[in-house]
Amino acid sequence: MERIVYKAPNNPGQKMPDVFIVTEPGMAVKYRAQKAPIGYSKKSNDENQSSLALVDVVQSFDIFQTATGKGFEGPVARPAKSDLDAIFGTENEQEIIEKIILEGELQGARTA
């Protein structure tokens, strides 16, 4: 499994926790490549592949944070919906997960 950590931009006087999702190994990179901006040069053998759905990329549609709010440190919990809304401007988990995949920091493989 791989974790992708999204480091929330902080508003003045407000510290937002880092959140993360768990993805299948190598799938986030493939998903990012298919969402590359127009004009991005793809390899010719990629053109015949079908596009990936989020369900093929994530291990579950769960969003997590640590108690410390920093990456891998501390016990894991689910963030409050109000925190997700403050960080992402929405509570729609599918939109949030896609944003984490596209803009988050890939932390690499971890063993369960």
Rank of each mutant, 00 (worst) to 15 (best):
T66V: 07
L84P: 10
V22I: 11
D18I: 03
K7W: 11
G104I: 00
N48R: 10
I63A: 06
T23K: 00
P25N: 08
A80W: 12
E93Q: 14
I63T: 08
A77F: 15
Q65Y: 08
I97R: 01
R32M: 05
I4C: 06
P79A: 05
K15Y: 08
Q107F: 08
I21T: 05
P25A: 10
P17Q: 01
P17W: 02
R78L: 12
Q34E: 05
Q34L: 02
E24D: 08
S82E: 15
A8N: 07
I100K: 01
K70Y: 13
K15L: 08
K30T: 08
V57S: 01
I4A: 04
T90C: 02
K35D: 14
G104F: 01
F61P: 00
K43N: 13
F64R: 07
F20Y: 11
A86H: 11
F20H: 09
A86K: 10
L106A: 12
Q65L: 11
L52N: 02
D85W: 05
I101S: 03
F72D: 14
P9G: 02
P9H: 01
S60R: 03
I87D: 06
L84C: 05
K99C: 00
I38C: 09
M16D: 13
S60H: 02
E91L: 10
D62Y: 10
P12N: 05
D62R: 05
I87E: 06
V55H: 12
I100L: 03
P25F: 04
Q14D: 13
A86L: 08
I97M: 04
A28D: 06
S60E: 12
S50V: 13
I100F: 01
P79L: 02
G13C: 01
M27W: 03
S41W: 09
Q49H: 11
V55S: 15
A8Y: 03
E24M: 10
K81F: 14
A67W: 02
M27I: 01
F88E: 00
I101H: 04
K35S: 12
